[in-house]
């Protein structure tokens, strides 16, 4: 009885084992296939990671981006400086001149330092408020610490006495040289582009 039972039992168990045998102990070929797929997956992943790293590094260390960034910094600084130089309120001449001074360097800066009390009084007497707005600007020459720009400027002049008077609007063409001093771009020269024919 017991031997029969045991025989039957072992019969069931061996049948189960037979059924699961291939999964528990795969033959040599599929195992190699698994190894190959893992290796392939690792290689593909490594290639992706490697190329991603290189792409990132190259994008972050792009010389073109550096030049373009410098150009854009010049555009922003030149716009601000040229607008400042075309803006003056007769009620705040001293502030205006200080702003001119702060945005310039070199010869232009020196010339502005020479604006004396008499000139200041004269500017105040004119009772005008001028506001400059750059309507177009392009960099024509770009070095590491020097740049040249051309700018189209709209200057609006209001009469300080007669508030009802129509402001006069002029459009001026300028060429300006900038120099990078201590990390900031400053105006070194600012000249109107005269008609020349």
């Amino acid at each position: 009885m017991s031997g029969r039972r045991s025989k039957a039992g072992s019969g069931v168990s061996s049948a189960t084992m037979l059924r699961y045998l291939p999964a528990l102990s795969p033959p040599a070929r599929p195992r190699r296939r698994v190894l190959v797929s893992w290796t392939a997956a690792l290689l593909v992943a490594a290639a992706l990671a490697g190329s991603g790293g290189v792409a990132w590094w190259r994008a972050a260390h792009d010389e073109r981006a550096e030049t373009a960034g410098r150009r854009d910094a010049v555009v922003i600084a030149a716009t601000r400086a040229i607008e400042t130089m075309n803006t003056l309120d007769y009620r705040k001449v001293e502030d205006g001149l200080e702003a001119w001074s702060a945005t310039t360097t070199g010869t232009l800066h020196d010339q502005l330092q020479q604006v004396g009390k008499e000139d200041q009084a004269l500017l105040a007497q004119q009772k005008k408020v001028s506001t400059g707005k750059v309507v177009g600007l392009a960099v024509v020459d770009l070095g590491t610490t020097t740049a040249t720009v051309v700018a189209s400027v709209q200057v609006t002049v209001r009469d300080g006495v007669d508030a009802a008077a129509e402001p006069t609007v002029k459009r001026n063409r300028f060429t300006a040289d900038l120099v990078r001093v201590g990390g900031t771009w400053k105006l070194e020269s600012l000249q109107q582009v005269a008609v020349h024919l």
């Binding site: 690792l42 992943a45 490594a46 290639a47 992706l48 990671a49 490697g50 190329s51 991603g52 790293g53 290189v54 792409a55 990132w56 190259r58 994008a59 972050a60 792009d62 073109r64 981006a65 030049t67 373009a68 960034g69 150009r71 854009d72 392009a138 960099v139 770009l142």
Partner: peptide, 28 residues
């Protein structure tokens, strides 16, 4: 590795996209 790779490429693409060099004036 896949996460790193995807992160690298994503960052590179966004850097290139936002790059001021997309305007080639004076750069080229």
């Amino acid at each position: 590795l896949v996460v790193l790779g995807v992160a690298g490429w994503t960052r590179a693409i966004s850097l290139r996209h936002d790059s001021p060099a997309s305007n080639a004036a004076l750069v080229d």
